[in-house]
């Protein structure tokens, strides 16, 4: 055999996630009303979420049949541009965190909330660990769809204090104590 390099140690992923996701917001766990579909014609629920490209392709059908009940899923590498004109009729935007180290969706959240004044539900989905929760809330996410079991457990006893005491004020949902300009957003 050739020389072994670094050993791969498989994390015991099975106990970390059982595919059962819970929707959490700063007021606690809540019901997830939206079902993910990859195609408009497959939708068989009252409220749905479609991938960005499909949503834009199907905008006419959505407006005619399900106006205000179909949200958008935006993957990490996708751009917001195509969506901006439709923001007022999009009830929920799900921004993806494919791995927790991929921070692109934080910027999109900030843009949606502070520049485009998005009024719908901004949802974080994907690889969400407890240590990113306060960043997400401070960037304007309203809800987090969490599959990581330990994170779910920790969120159950999460207190609102964690959002204060930062230099940057975030999107105005949680005020921090200071008064300087970089402590306000």
């Amino acid at each position: 055999m050739g020389s072994l390099e670094r050993l791969e140690f498989l994390e015991m992923e099975t106990i970390l996630s059982d595919g059962n996701s819970k929707l959490w917001g700063p007021h606690g766990f809540c019901e997830n009303l939206y079902v993910r579909f990859d195609k408009f014609e497959k939708i068989n629920a009252q409220r749905a979420i479609l991938p960005l490209r499909e949503w834009c392709l199907q905008v006419t059908a959505i407006v005619e049949n399900m106006k205000g009940r179909v949200g958008v899923f935006i993957s990490a590498e996708e751009d917001l541009k195509g969506l901006l004109q439709f923001l007022s009729i999009i009830p929920v935007i799900a921004l993806d965190f494919p791995v927790f180290t991929d921070g692109r969706s934080y910027s999109k959240a900030m843009q949606l909330k502070t520049i485009h004044s998005y009024k719908g539900e901004l949802r974080a989905v994907g690889d969400i660990l407890i240590d990113q929760v306060s960043n997400m809330i401070r960037c304007g996410f309203d809800t987090l769809e969490v599959t990581h079991l330990l994170t779910q457990k920790r969120l159950a006893s999460y207190s609102g204090e964690i959002f204060s005491g930062f230099y940057q004020n975030g999107v105005g949902l949680f005020r921090s104590g200071g008064k300087r300009i970089w402590r306000f957003f």
């Binding site: 927790f100 921070g103 401070r138 940057q168």
Partner: peptide
């Protein structure tokens, strides 16, 4: 401004 900036931590 940069310390634990929520947008620029990842």
């Amino acid at each position: 401004w940069s310390l634990l900036h929520p947008e620029f931590s990842y």
